[in-house]
Design a protein around this nucleic acid. Sequence first.
DNA 1: GCCAACGTTGGC
DNA 2: GCCAACGTTGGC
Length: 155
Amino acid sequence: MTKWLVKTEPEECSIDDFAAAPEKSIPWDGVRNYQARNFLQQMKPDDRVFIYHSSCKHIGIAGVVKVVRAAYPDPKQFDEGSPYFDPKRSAEKPRWYAVDMQYDAKLPSLIPLEQLKTMPELQELALVKRGNRLSVMPVSEAQWEAIRGTRKNAQ
DNA sequence: GCCAACGTTGGC
DNA sequence: GCCAACGTTGGC
């Protein structure tokens, strides 16, 4: 089972949206970056995923969700009314993919980016590197444990 | 709101 | 296939 981290603007989709309907899955769509897409395609049901809130007041890791449906063509690339519409794509040749995710756990307290940056275990995590824009990334077991084990979030 | 860093596009 | 211009991301 692989572990992951995804970025999201909480106004768009936050950990609270997952927590509000823990029995429902939410499509993770609109990813329009090749490297991020490639990672999405590697996700498997039951993989765990950190939810990171970006471009907001409280930036940091807020909770955990799980993958419940592996990658499928992102319907929004075909939807003319969607901001994620991609006019060059056809149903026969999709370029972008989505997965479905469902609530797993909210962290007792958000782990701020500022704190993540100070953790020696995370120095290789793309998230904390300067200028990084990757919105979907793998998290190693050691990185996962380090994050889950931060003092405020122990247990 | 600013702006640095980055990915993508398109002319040549 | 280069690279300048452009649009977007995302922390501050």
